[in-house]
């Protein structure tokens, strides 16, 4: 028996890499995934590089007000003569940050609630799910508007409010996944092998719904970015923060449309659309690939 050679080939690092990378390989065959990932990476890169690539401080009056795009100001200037391109790049970082953290926080809540309700079932499930139902029927946007009016206008409170309002859907999805997965044969086998409840939940059930959770997180990101832009557009939240929403807000307040300053309105509007599309394609790519794998 040449087990020794096998062990040598399988160093722990390469084994871990194999485990992590192998499931991702089929994704590279999905054109949607690649295109979606490229779009998202582009915006992420823009956001991360942020201050390194902006030509001017976004608040500095670096040119004449209302100047159209030129070599010096590639996206022109706003009513104060601030560089729109700098605003856009800095705003990208804020918008992405809000999207990312909202997705992170709300899915943490949603996953915990969903897992608990689905796995424990019975009364726990009843209580938690009735509460979720209640949250789901509350019209979200008006509530957002009211809450933002009372909380200090900072990005943190925007993240907080959006997180608290967007987890219920995730918990529903997670719960229904748990309900199907816990009836699977390998879950029974795992229990028979002596595994405890927590081990079954986190080793057998949770990893098998990772793609679905990830897809829903992507939708949460899109939703949060749009909701934050929407709030900002209405002047709620922190209007002095620089993000895609506040860009549109100031453009509207200062009548950019009347001045025909399309260079001020178009970039944030388009960015929201394109990033949304990119994230959507990413999610679809994952969904189609995992479905294909499951079908055999």
């Amino acid at each position: 028996m040449n087990i020794q050679t096998v062990s040598k080939q399988q160093s722990p690092v390469s084994f871990l890499a194999r485990r992590l990378i192998r499931p991702l390989v089929p994704l590279t065959h999905s054109r949607k995934f690649i295109l979606g990932a490229s779009i998202v990476m582009f915006f992420v890169a823009l956001g991360l590089l942020g201050r390194l690539i902006v030509p001017f401080g976004p608040l500095a009056q670096s040119g004449a007000p209302w100047s159209p795009p030129s070599a010096r100001h590639i996206l022109g200037t706003n009513y104060l003569g601030q560089d729109v391109f700098s605003w856009f790049v800095i705003g990208t970082a804020t918008s992405l940050k809000v999207g990312f953290f909202v997705a992170l926080f709300s899915s943490s809540i949603g996953i915990s609630v969903g897992l608990t309700a689905g796995y424990l079932g019975k009364y726990t499930d009843d209580v938690l799910m009735r509460f979720v139902d209640m949250l789901l029927v509350i019209p979200a946007f008006p509530l957002l508007v009211i809450l933002s009016a009372y909380l200090p206008p900072t990005n943190t409170s925007t993240i907080l409010i959006l997180s608290l309002l967007s987890w219920p859907f995730m918990s529903r999805v997670v719960r229904s996944q748990v309900l199907t997965l816990k009836e699977r044969g390998y879950v029974a086998v795992s229990k028979l092998s002596g595994a405890g409840n927590l081990s079954v939940m986190f080793k057998d059930i949770f990893p098998n719904m990772a793609p679905i959770i990830f897809i829903n997180m992507i939708f949460l990101v899109i939703g949060a970015i749009i909701a934050q832009a929407g709030l900002a557009f209405f002047g709620l939240g922190n209007v002095n923060s620089i993000n895609w929403g506040t860009m549109l807000y100031w453009a509207q307040v200062e009548d950019a449309a009347v001045q025909s300053a399309w260079w001020w309105i178009l970039p944030p509007g388009l960015a929201i659309g394109v990033l949304g599309m990119g994230l959507n394609m990413l999610a679809n790519g994952i969904a189609e690939t995992t479905l294909e794998m499951r079908m055999g």
Binding site: Y186, L192, P207
Partner: peptide, 24 residues
Amino acid sequence: RRNVQMILQDPYDSLNPLFSIFAS
């Protein structure tokens, strides 16, 4: 648990698809 085991009917359902044979 150590002394009593079960073999299930559906071979496509009784192994966790994410674990290697060794792990299972």
